[in-house]
Design a protein around this nucleic acid. Structure first.
Length: 965
RNA sequence: GCGGCUGUGGCGAAGCAGGCAGACGCGCCAGACUUAGGAUCUGGUGGUGGAGACACCGUGAGGGUUCGAAUCCCUUCAGCCGCACCA
């Protein structure tokens, strides 16, 4: 590049070149750091600055989703959101805000552990090295983070509080009457006083410690449970539902996942299901994310209904099958029932022999087996052996088998056969359904396959008639009338769905065989992992296996040093395996003698050897940013209330802005909200929600070039000739994809910053398009942002002498209009996170100044302030050259003077039948009548009208006249 | 299958409350400076027709509402994302 050749440098030694930019950038980054310009004062505590009235200003808490510090390094897609929050934070600082903006590291996680397993290097070593490298890269982008507030989840001083929060959750229960979490001690008191009965009615004092522990386990928000969990032999650990893909594999590593019954830690997030849905209304989040959370929580209102079991030989006794249905109004149409194959009632209702039936039972029902027990056992075996993939692939074909038992439809009194089928899931509702084949697509398919009767109980709104045996599909409707649904004591006929639901639910409730209920898809959160590189649980077990929380004084429970970091992993396909944790091998750590303060002195305990999942550290880090080195509390209430407390405009409280990818819609964001709500209930925070405004930045994509065989070729080596892309001589195809090593299209930020400048990269990323839209990286286009900065520089600095070339003339009106229009537009755009149009307006102003030929000093100063949030290094340098000796980080952004926002003449468009025929320059205050006269007199309009009769004239002064002929 | 989002020049995009479609940038064309230009600067650049002023056509497709639609409504197609037998 010529700028770096000696001749060119001699010709223009003060040109804004990559070399000069690099100097400027390094100098200002050092100075920002030295002067601590990004430090935001707290009201109280170690970060308070008594006497500094910054804390009295309006304030804002701006967050990025913190990164996992991977060793792979950044590509140009990574910093997009970080640059955006930095630009926004800088804008807020320049509009009089005390701004909290920092960056932490989500540093527990699999890659470091796997690397440790391979190399023997402690995960802490690699992780900390990666963090150092990340900090260096983030700093080099000019990001204005308050580094005093930066945290890493792996620091014992941080995870001490992760463990402390775990203990708060463990020591709490959800009081449904109060609708909030309360300390478990209050529940113990209720049991002890007899205000609440124990499950078996014995006095609390009569229970053994282990029995009490078991009872409390039913209430605690963090509890241990033997439950079917997602066991992944390939990873050697169990996984949360959210970490398992739709086709039954681990999100990390893509190994098969099996259901296994294991004792694991769970979090009772389901207790918060309603509040997690309802409080979304308070949040300024994208609708798409809110919808995803609502769908994930999956609230549905319906009823539970009991069906009495009826077998010919009396098997099953007086058992009843309870179903959950969202359509109790269609109860009269229930002509059979289905239990999930794993349903616990199945064994007890299966009779010894097939019931007799006229003409015998259909072969589909019995599966050809001689007894129901054999048929059921065989079906259960096949169902259990099916992977989730197969189960889904088979979703259209309904399979199942008759149990030999019947149940009584409580409204029609009819005997309906009871089946087991894998289209009914044990994990949802009660694991049993009433099948209404006429009005449910799945039941319809099953009924067709098994020749089951159907009854139409919802009046079809089309011309299919009321005989379901002639239908091609189920008639599903939520606003048609109920028909064919009456017995001696109730009739739903003619009612709408809503009224019918209410009527039948009341009827069932009166008879004690049903009740309205709400059901959720959300399951409790599986919270333990059989991993090394995670937070240890602050829990020990006594000789009876009772879990004891450690007192706060014993926190943090630090990870022990061990030789082998790997959990035992297995053949990924071998389901008959069970977890073995790395920590369980650290015997001297596991066995501890402690005095837990119950007056029993020092006793032996065993530590919990599972660790917390990766999500734990990210569930609350926003709180630690607020008060990063508070040793006495998780966060000082005064600091939390200052930065996150609810206000009239922000009822939810929480950080003012949270920017990150949409991939965390239901994992991190749901877990973090849950923890925050528990802390809110227990009085540790004043804000019911952690993040008030959420913004999902789009992904920066890149072109992927593939050769004939479909393999990606190095994007940097592809050339375009006449619209065709060549890799060498080979023609290659082009598509848009993610940036990644495997697609051979990685562009590192350093490639851009060394060829242009950091400010160029920042500006280009902001100018590419709206922040929330994904778009392809185009290295060729970056030069546009560079040219803008060069022009800006040249408007102020002479490239040959380095002299400041702004003039002392008084800016003329046209210039002031251009300036104030830019100020006004950029302020609005910045406030709305529309950085792309803000850049366009800054460019427009700069282009205006270039054309003008000279730049008056006050205009130059304001222009520099306007671009400062976007391109802070060059702005600081120019600001200094303009004679200011303080950083502009806290300078005040100019305000638009409304005088110059009003145009003194407006272009009025004259249309004939909506087509533009003429343009008039008119005063903005012109009246309708005058404008109409002017328009009709315009020669171009007269010509276009050609004497045609004017039927109507629409005038929208001063901008438009539309003539209708 | 269900739900959501997005379709505007060669490309990334503007157009926020129905009122001049294409701001700003890339690319491209022409010119300047140059031994040179893949640097920089200046001008032009939606399409078609025309020497030209100008005319006509243009926001995925089709229809509608309106004096007027990229914008609102209906239908449809394409792409992306989420969920996936949730009773």
């Amino acid at each position: 590049m010529s700028e770096s050749t000696p001749e060119a440098a001699a010709a223009a030694p003060y040109r804004y070149t990559p070399a000069l930019a690099a100097q400027i950038e390094a100098r200002w980054q050092d100075r920002w750091e030295k002067d601590g310009v990004f430090a935001a004062p707290n009201p109280v505590g170690s970060l308070a600055e008594p006497g500094d009235d910054t804390v009295e200003q309006p304030h804002a808490f701006i967050m990025d989703m913190f990164p996992y510090p991977s060793g792979a390094g950044l590509h140009v897609g990574h910093p997009l959101g970080y640059i955006a929050t930095d630009v926004y934070a800088r804008h807020l600082r320049m509009t009089g805000h005390n701004v909290l903006h920092t960056m932490g590291f989500d540093a527990f996680g699999l890659p470091a552990e796997q690397y440790a397993v391979q190399t023997g290097t402690h995960p802490r070593v690699t992780t900390e090295a990666n963090i150092v490298e990340f900090r260096r890269q983030l700093r080099s982008l000019g990001l204005g983070h308050d580094l005093r507030r930066s945290i890493a989840t792996i620091d014992p001083s941080y995870y001490k509080w992760t463990q402390w929060i775990f203990l708060q959750i463990f020591n709490s229960w959800y009081d449904p009457e109060a609708g909030r979490a309360r300390p478990i001690t209050e529940l113990v008191a209720k049991f002890a006083s007899g205000a609440q009965a124990t499950p078996d009615g014995r006095a609390w004092s009569a229970l053994t410690p282990a029995e009490r522990d078991e009872v409390l386990g039913e209430y605690r928000l963090a509890y241990i449970k033997l439950a079917p969990v997602n066991w992944c032999p390939g990873l050697g650990t169990v996984l949360a539902n959210e970490e398992v893909t739709a086709d039954g594999r681990s999100e990390r590593g893509n190994f098969p996942v099996f259901k296994a019954n294991l004792r694991q830690w769970m979090m009772r997030i389901t207790a918060y299901a309603d509040r997690l849905i309802d409080d979304l209304d308070m949040l300024d989040w994208p609708d798409a994310i809110k919808l995803q959370q609502r769908n994930w929580i999956g609230r549905s209102e319906g009823a539970k209904v009991d069906f009495a079991v009826h077998t010919a030989d009396g098997t099953g006794g007086d058992a009843a099958i309870t179903v959950f249905t969202t359509r109790p109004d269609t109860l009269f149409g229930a002509t059979y029932m289905v239990l999930a194959p794993e349903h616990e009632l199945v064994d007890s209702i299966v009779p010894a022999a097939w019931p007799s039936a006229e003409g015998g039972l259909p072969a589909e029902w019995t599966g050809g087996f001689a007894t129901p027990a054999e048929a059921v056992a065989a079906y259960r075996r096949t169902a259990a052996a099916k992977s989730d993939v197969e189960r889904q692939a088979d979703a259209k074909v309904k399979t199942g088998v008759f149990t030999g038992a019947y149940a009584i439809n409580p409204v029609s009194g009819e005997q309906v056969p009871v089946f087991i089928a894998d289209y009914v899931l044990m994990g949802y509702g009660t694991g049993a359904i009433m099948a209404v084949p006429a009005h449910d697509v799945r039941d319809f398919a099953f009924a067709r396959a098994f020749q089951l009767p159907m009854r139409c109980v919802v009046q079809p709104s089309d011309d299919r008639g009321t005989d379901p045996s002639t239908w091609d599909d189920a008639f599903v409707s939520y606003d048609a009338a109920i028909v064919n649904s009456a017995n001696e004591s109730i009739s739903l006929d003619g009612l709408g769905v809503v009224d019918a639901k209410k009527a039948i639910t009341d009827w069932l409730a009166e008879r004690g065989i049903g009740a309205g209920t709400v059901n959720f898809k959300l399951r409790d959160w599986l919270f333990s992992r059989q991993r090394y590189w995670g937070e240890p649980f602050p829990i020990v077990y006594d000789e009876d296996g009772v879990a004891h929380p450690l007192p706060e004084s014993m926190l943090p429970v630090e990870l022990p040093e061990i030789d082998d970091y790997s959990p035992r992993t297995f053949d990924p396909n071998d389901a008959n395996t069970s977890p073995e944790t790395p920590l369980s091998r650290a015997e001297e750590w596991v066995e501890v003698k402690l005095d837990l303060g119950a007056g029993e002195g020092v006793k032996s305990y065993r530590r919990e050897t599972n660790t917390m999942p990766n999500w734990a550290g990210s569930c609350w880090y926003e709180l630690r940013y607020v008060d990063p080195d508070n040793d006495a509390e998780v966060v000082d209430p005064a600091n939390e209330a200052y930065w996150m407390g609810p206000t009239a405009a922000k009822k939810s409280g929480g950080a003012d802005l949270y920017v990150g990818g949409a991939e965390h819609a239901v994992l991190h964001l749901l877990y973090a909200r849950f923890w925050h709500k528990v802390l809110f209930d227990l009085g540790h925070v004043s804000s019911p929600e952690p993040f008030h405004k959420l913004f999902n930045q789009g992904m920066i994509q890149a072109y992927v070039y593939r050769d004939e065989r479909g393999f990606p070729v190095a994007a940097a080596e592809v050339e375009e000739r006449d619209g065709v892309w060549y890799h060498g001589d080979e023609v290659v195809s082009r598509e848009i994809g993610k940036i990644g090593k495997s697609l051979k299209n990685v562009v590192a930020p350093e490639e851009v910053t060394s060829e242009y400048s950091v400010d160029t990269l920042r500006l280009y990323e902001m100018a590419m398009g709206p922040l929330d839209v994904s778009r392809p990286w185009d290295t060729r286009a970056v030069v546009g942002s560079y040219r803008f900065l060069q022009r800006l520089w040249r408007n102020i600095v002479d490239e040959e002498t380095g002299a400041v070339v702004v003039t002392d003339e008084t800016p003329d009106e046209e210039t002031l209009r251009a300036l104030n229009k830019a100020i006004d537009g950029i302020r609005t755009d910045m406030a709305n996170l529309r950085f792309n149009t803000a850049v366009a307006k800054a460019t427009e102003l700069n282009n205006f100044l270039v054309k003008r030929g000279s730049t008056p000093r006050p205009v130059a100063e304001q222009a520099v302030l306007l671009v400062a949030p976007l391109a802070p290094h060059i702005a600081e340098e120019l600001w200094q050259k303009l004679g200011h000796d303080t950083s502009l980080v806290h300078a005040q952004l100019p305000e638009a003077d409304p005088v110059y926002l009003v145009e003194d003449s407006v272009t009025c468009v004259v249309q004939i039948k909506g087509k533009v025929k003429a343009r008039l320059e008119v005063p903005p205050a012109i009246g309708d009548a005058e404008l109409e006269t002017l328009a009709l007199a315009d020669p171009a309009v007269v010509a276009a009208l050609g004497g045609a009769e004017v039927r109507k004239v629409i005038v929208r002064a001063p901008k438009l006249v539309n003539i209708v002929i």
